[in-house]
Design a binder for these strands. Sequence first.
DNA 1: ACTCCTATGCTCATAATGAGCATAATTAGA
DNA 2: TCTAATTATGCTCATTATGAGCATAGGAGT
Lengths: 310, 310
Amino acid sequence: MVASSVAAELIAVLVAVAGATPQVLTIAGGASLPSGPLSPEHRSLQAGVRAWVERQTHHPLGYVEQLYTFADNDRNAVSHTDGRAISISYLGLTREQPNAEDDGAAWCNWYDYFPWEDRRHDGIGESAIIQALHVWAEAAPKPSEIRARSLRVAVAFGLDGRRWNEELVLQRYELLYEAGLVAEATRDGIACHSDTSGLGLGLPMQQDHRRILATGIARLRAKITYRPVVFELMPPMFTLLDLQRSVEALAGRLLHKQNFRRLVEQQELVEETGIMAEPTGGRPAKLFRFRADILQERAYAGTKPPLARS
Amino acid sequence: MVASSVAAELIAVLVAVAGATPQVLTIAGGASLPSGPLSPEHRSLQAGVRAWVERQTHHPLGYVEQLYTFADNDRNAVSHTDGRAISISYLGLTREQPNAEDDGAAWCNWYDYFPWEDRRHDGIGESAIIQALHVWAEAAPKPSEIRARSLRVAVAFGLDGRRWNEELVLQRYELLYEAGLVAEATRDGIACHSDTSGLGLGLPMQQDHRRILATGIARLRAKITYRPVVFELMPPMFTLLDLQRSVEALAGRLLHKQNFRRLVEQQELVEETGIMAEPTGGRPAKLFRFRADILQERAYAGTKPPLARS
DNA sequence: ACTCCTATGCTCATAATGAGCATAATTAGA
DNA sequence: TCTAATTATGCTCATTATGAGCATAGGAGT
């Protein structure tokens, strides 16, 4: 049971929210996620991520969570040992907007990479994308494969009466990759049966970084529904609409305002500060802050009721 | 960005269910999880896990999912390069009960390692454990730390009117580790303020394998509530009570029979086979099978309604 | 026939969720 | 000043999900 020797690197999906736009920290002109080597001096993986992210961005990382470990031979760069490189990816949330442009680092709207994931404003929609995916599905060799592909498309994009599930970010990206519709696919030598220009398929990234980003977005979208992690992204004081806009930015969909308030208030996540927000052309809003005591408790266990009681 | 070279190994939490007991595959007389080296010939990590698990157990792995990647310097064995070893753990579900005892491999009831996680039959309970944890909490140096510890204990074990959350397997084990109550902690040099004999603290494992097992159990318990993964553990035909017993075995708690049926039937996960089960002293039960079509769809997206609609 | 056991069908209270109406408190402009 | 626009906030209502219990069905054993 002697393990073979491999090269290991840490990749970070670092998220912040500016107003109504979710942002991710990138390097190389937006083509890469920041990554650093796993160094022997780090006591743990998470400590390693914290260390070099905080050195790079000069901002404390509030929340850090392991995402996924990749080691595909084909999609990764060649390492110096035996051709295998392991990428351990992390999701990090940071509260304030750091002064980017440090050493080529920049905060980018994550919907630049996944335009179809932003469904807050139903503009042109993704009908062209779905068309192209249908072409791909029909191009499958076997009838059973055609059905399987069509089902995957229908589930991922909420077709035929299904609801759009905003957590299927990775599944949607993988579909587009397999169908040869994103730039990374053709780069990796996957054939494409459609004209991909003008479909709004987003900016590509190096290696499989866009896949890792998709994983991070999916994880975060799932997390905000049952753990109070949004507060890691908020300033100390905020209005309920600020909070709602942040959640909507992450989830990529609009929420019912009154119901959102009800949810937040009945979970006792926030409390009034007694201060009013700056007037913005409407009735002035109260400023709230998060309740540290409740947050601490909810950080361990979510609010979901588990299985049936005995 | 040159990554340092490390040793990588794959660790599997392989789960099966026999009647009403959840089982995990172990080696070394139940003291270790099966693990294998990451070899360059494996096309991906998951392929690597599948390959050597199927070679070892001679059974196909239905469901495989990455669990977590560990690389703590302190809790792990020394590798041959620079002292760092990376362990990438996977959760696997297998349908039938393999012929164990192959090369020292054996299927063990996972509650042998976590007796406090089985709450199906409220016997003596874990009051002694909670006592010991209270002692540990009160022994904290600072008052704020005492409060923090007490809160963690209360949340993890469902005290003070909180409900027991069966998904907090890892949190509970970590508490016991930090409090020095499990054997691994004293092995790793953590002091203990209580007499741990007779507390029912379960069998220890080598290295941090018990922590990995706890992670796997927690993941599986969470998963069964929103993804139809139980069927990977069931025979082709089963009664609804069989199914319920399996879920109860995993969740560690009893379910309301009628409500469980309602849930399963309204989700259309199963269909009748027309065959009746062997009589067992009561009214004979119908045998069911899983519906392949529905399962395929639910495998991608769960059944949970997401956030509020726009 | 009676008892014991498990299967199965149905009802009911309560909570969570999605959607809408109504009113309050401002600013911008006629 | 009066009015429209805009945002905040409170409340109701229908639908669905959840937890719990009652009742009946269909067998085995005595």
